[in-house]
Design a protein around this nucleic acid. Structure first.
Lengths: 181, 181
DNA sequence: GAAATATGTCAACATGGCTGACATAATTTT
DNA sequence: AAAATTATGTCAGCCATGTTGACATATTTC
């Protein structure tokens, strides 16, 4: 089943404009729609768990990035999430009040509030990441060896060229942070 | 640039549980985060255009699927988007009132309201799809030949097994619909 | 000491989800 | 033909999460 009989439209129709990829010809419908559906399901697993905690997606994003980057500054989080401090403030306050995140004064600059997950916070963050890992792991297992690298390469190049380097640096740095040397 | 030096964690740590992928071991951080960032940028291009029209993401989704599936019923759209008819009603009404979508009485069952984009609606839908196609096309071009198939396979298996077949059927059907035989 | 920076907070507003209740028209069932 | 079901629409209100703008506080830098 799942016989893949989609449009093999890779002909690109030899548009009169062989320049700078201005999206001549037919849109790449299959990937546009698969991204929509895949992402929808990808976030739905955490959503169900979060609901039981009275949290939403916004809480998930904060918890995720704080867990991945213990000690990050509020400003870093704002830049990563690309939301306003007021939006962040609302969910962050709840996470702090309910003991999922703590804030420590910055050692060098005491204006900074460095963010850390508590054990309770880490437990939830890891549980949510685990759900998403199950889905991804299942997909990769179904696809065979090169799939992880392939997916990583595709998703990476889908990111704005400007942000790409920063994202990769973030991931690499977070891996070091969570993997005590 | 964009040197890929991420965690090559494909060792899976040989967990004591070789069963049913229960997310033992370390989460697949890189793909979790790349999905987040890639999707964020993927929807940001249309967002900017939609803003000028006074529309939001909700309008985009409706316009997209109606454009892809001319003559679809309201019930189909509700199922595809997985929202309530009240939520749909709000944005659909605006799209109809402003001449982007029209509704026709169903020929066999006159309770049905079959949805169609107008020329104006199609133009906007295609413009938005074009933006997303530029991004995807750029990524695929950067990656070489097998990338399209690889991305399709990965995203497909990321979808809930239940919905997968329906999604593929939808895409295949829509391709026929927009490609007058 | 003044200016800039990091963070927090109050108030108000917009979008787009949701539930519940109810209305209408058309079709299907009995 | 009457009754029940179905497809759609609509009103009212709530919630989560995004936004702007204004302002307060503590701290650091100039």
């Amino acid at each position: 089943m799942a016989d893949i009989i989609l449009n093999q439209d890779s002909g690109r129709a030899a548009g009169s404009d062989p320049e700078a990829v201005p999206a001549e010809g037919e849109p790449i419908w299959d990937l546009i729609e698969l991204l929509f559906f895949a992402y929808r399901d990808f976030v739905s697993d955490p959503d169900h768990v979060l609901e039981k905690f009275g949290f939403g997606r916004a809480h998930h994003r904060v918890l995720h990035f704080v867990n991945r980057n213990p000690g990050m500054k509020v400003a870093d989080l704002l830049e990563t999430l690309r939301i306003t401090k007021q939006s962040l403030g609302r969910v962050l306050k709840q996470l702090v009040d309910q003991g999922y995140v703590i804030q420590k004064e910055g050692p060098d600059d005491r204006r900074h509030r460095l963010l850390y997950v508590t054990p309770k916070g880490e437990q939830l963050a890891m549980r949510l990441a685990g759900l998403q890992t199950v889905r991804i792991g299942r997909a990769l297992a179904e696809l065979g060896s090169g799939a992880h690298d392939g997916a990583r390469a595709f998703l990476t190049t889908m990111i704005d060229a400007d942000s790409r380097e920063a994202v990769l640096r973030f991931i690499a740095r977070a891996d070091r942070a969570r993997r005590p040397r």
